[in-house]
C-alpha cells in the first residue's frame, strides 16, 4: 500500500496547478523512489515529467509499485479543500480504485478526509535520452514568465538564440516585432536573481509560445528556471524543487 505525508499541501497543489492545463488524465507512479509522472499533451508536442522524491515526504511508505490513474481537474477540486499549510496524507491500497486524501491543520483540530475515484489509464512512457545540451541558461522564473507572456502578445512563435553574447528571445508578428536579450549576470548575494549561461556551442531554435506560456504556470514551484537547448532537439525547461522537479520538454518548430 501507499502512505505518503507532505508537511505542506502547497507542494502538491502547486505541481497540479503547473501541469493541469497541459495534461488531463495521467498516472501518478508510486514506487520506492517517490511519486513520478510522465505525460504528453494531447497533440504530442510537449511532455511533462515530475518527480516528488521520498526525501520530500515527512513519511513515505510504498510496498510495491502502484499507478494512480488520476484526472487532474478532479484532483484539483479535492485539493481546493486543503489549506496551503495543511499536512496532507495520501493513502492507497495495492490495486486501488480510489485515492484517500487527508488534510490536517497545524493546530491539529481539523481533519478533512476525501476520496478521489481513480481511473485506468493506458499511458505510453517515452524514453528520454541523456543529452549534452549546447546551451544551458539559469534565470529567475518570473523573468522567463514575463518574457514569454510579452512576446506571446505579438506572435505565436519565438526564436531562441544562444551565443557567447547571451540568450536572445525574438519574435515577429502582424503588429510588429520584439526581442529580449539576456546577458550573463550572476548575482553573488542572491543567486536566484542572477542569470548564468553555459555555452558549448551556439544554438538557434524556434518554439511555440503557447506552450512556453503554459509551462510558466510552474513558476510558483521555484524562483529559478533552467532552460536547456540543443539544435534540433526538444527544449528542456526545468523547475527544481527542494526534493524533486517538474520538467517540460517541447519539440521545436522545424524549417520554413
Amino acid at each position: 500500500m501507499l502512505e505518503a505525508r507532505l508537511e505542506q499541501s502547497s507542494v502538491l497543489k502547486k505541481v497540479v496547478d503547473a501541469i493541469k492545463d497541459l495534461v488531463q488524465d495521467c498516472n501518478f507512479d508510486c514506487n520506492d523512489s517517490g511519486i513520478q509522472l510522465q505525460a504528453m499533451d494531447n497533440s504530442h508536442v510537449a511532455l511533462v515529467a515530475m518527480h516528488l522524491k521520498t526525501e520530500g515526504f515527512a513519511l513515505y511508505r510504498c510496498d510495491r509499485n502502484i499507478a494512480l490513474g488520476i484526472n487532474l481537474v478532479s484532483l484539483q477540486k479535492v485539493l481546493r479543500a486543503a489549506q496551503n499549510e495543511d499536512v496532507m496524507t495520501l493513502k492507497a491500497e495495492d490495486s486501488p480504485d480510489a485515492l484517500s486524501l487527508v488534510f490536517e491543520n497545524s493546530e491539529n483540530d481539523r481533519i478533512s478526509e476525501y476520496d478521489l475515484k481513480l481511473m485506468d489509464i493506458d499511458q505510453e512512457h517515452l524514453g528520454i535520452p541523456e543529452t549534452e545540451y549546447g546551451a544551458t541558461v539559469k534565470m529567475p522564473s518570473a523573468e522567463f514568465q514575463r518574457i514569454c507572456r510579452d512576446l506571446s502578445l505579438l506572435s505565436e512563435s519565438v526564436a531562441i538564440e544562444a551565443t557567447k553574447e547571451g540568450i536572445k528571445f525574438s519574435c515577429t508578428g502582424d503588429i510588429g516585432k520584439g526581442a529580449v536579450t539576456l546577458r550573463q549576470n550572476p548575482n553573488v548575494e542572491k543567486p536566484e536573481l542572477g542569470t548564468t549561461i553555459e555555452l558549448q556551442e551556439p544554438v538557434a531554435l524556434t518554439f511555440s509560445l503557447k506552450y512556453l506560456v503554459n509551462f510558466c504556470k510552474a513558476s510558483g514551484l521555484s524562483n529559478t528556471v533552467t532552460i536547456s537547448l540543443s539544435n534540433e532537439v526538444p527544449l528542456l525547461i526545468e523547475y527544481e524543487m527542494e526534493h524533486g522537479y517538474v520538467r517540460f520538454y517541447l519539440a521545436p518548430k522545424i524549417g520554413d
Binding site: H44, H125, G127, I128, P129, T206, V233, P234, A251, I254
Partner: peptide, 14 residues
C-alpha cells in the same frame, strides 16, 4: 515560422 515537430519523433517508446 516552421512546422511544429512531434515530441515522439525525438523520444522513443520505452
Amino acid at each position: 515560422e516552421g512546422t511544429q515537430a512531434n515530441i515522439t519523433n525525438f523520444f522513443t517508446g520505452a
